[in-house]
């Protein structure tokens, strides 16, 4: 995968397959500690401890059409080659949380990529699933005396539904999807504003 946002989309598809009603995606960029953390959490059917460990094996998959499942192993490999790692916390009947972290400045770290595209596409194509996105950027204050500054962008597909009435299928409207994408793009862009001052 060329972008981390594509791994995120892939994990969101896993959540959907697990019957999730809500998917929480979180991206945290800590420029002070040089750390990038990506988390995808859901309230789907979850896995047992054994299943969760086995999910990192490329030759284990829940589907029946073929014997390989590469989504999680690929994301794990992406994290490990950047001095990071990946964990899966899961409980049967409660949901799953996949967390990966990377050294943000690592030369092999893929760009985060088009997170807005991932979130808007998933929200629009899966109107019955609530998509909640949080993206935080923490950086050192320009003044050495001041504490670190943190900015956050949040998006919740059900907030959009609320503005547009009751029926979540409005999220499928191409114009609404486009609005969500532009909205997320702008929100994420604003997180980096003023850098280098």
């Amino acid at each position: 995968m060329r972008e981390l946002s594509l791994h995120v989309l892939d994990l969101m598809e896993n959540s959907k397959a697990a019957g999730a009603r809500t998917v929480w995606v979180s991206v945290e960029e800590d420029l002070v500690r040089d750390l990038l953390t990506i988390e995808v959490r859901d309230d789907g059917k979850g896995m047992s401890q054994d299943q969760a460990q086995a999910a990192l094996d490329p030759f284990v998959t829940s589907r029946t059409t073929r014997k390989v499942g590469l989504g999680l192993p690929l994301f794990l490999a992406a994290a490990r080659r950047c001095e990071g790692d990946l964990t899966i916390e899961s409980e049967a009947g409660k949901g799953t949380c996949v967390r990966a972290w990377f050294r943000r400045s690592h030369i092999d770290r893929a760009p985060i990529g088009d997170m807005a595209g991932t979130i808007a596409t998933f929200s629009g194509l899966n109107p019955m699933i609530r998509t909640v996105y949080s993206h935080k950027v923490t950086k050192k204050a320009s003044n050495t005396q001041a504490s670190d500054t943190q900015r956050e962008f949040r998006f919740d597909s059900y907030e959009v539904v609320k503005y547009l009435g009751e029926d979540s299928r409005v999220l499928q409207n191409p114009e609404v999807i486009n609005w969500m994408r532009c909205h997320c793009e702008e929100g994420i862009r604003n997180l980096y504003g003023g850098e280098g001052e």
């Binding site: 959009v160 503005y163 547009l164 609404v176």
Partner: peptide, 9 residues
């Protein structure tokens, strides 16, 4: 977004 509402519905 509000402007889209009617069209979307």
């Amino acid at each position: 977004l509000r402007a889209l509402k009617e069209k979307a519905l």
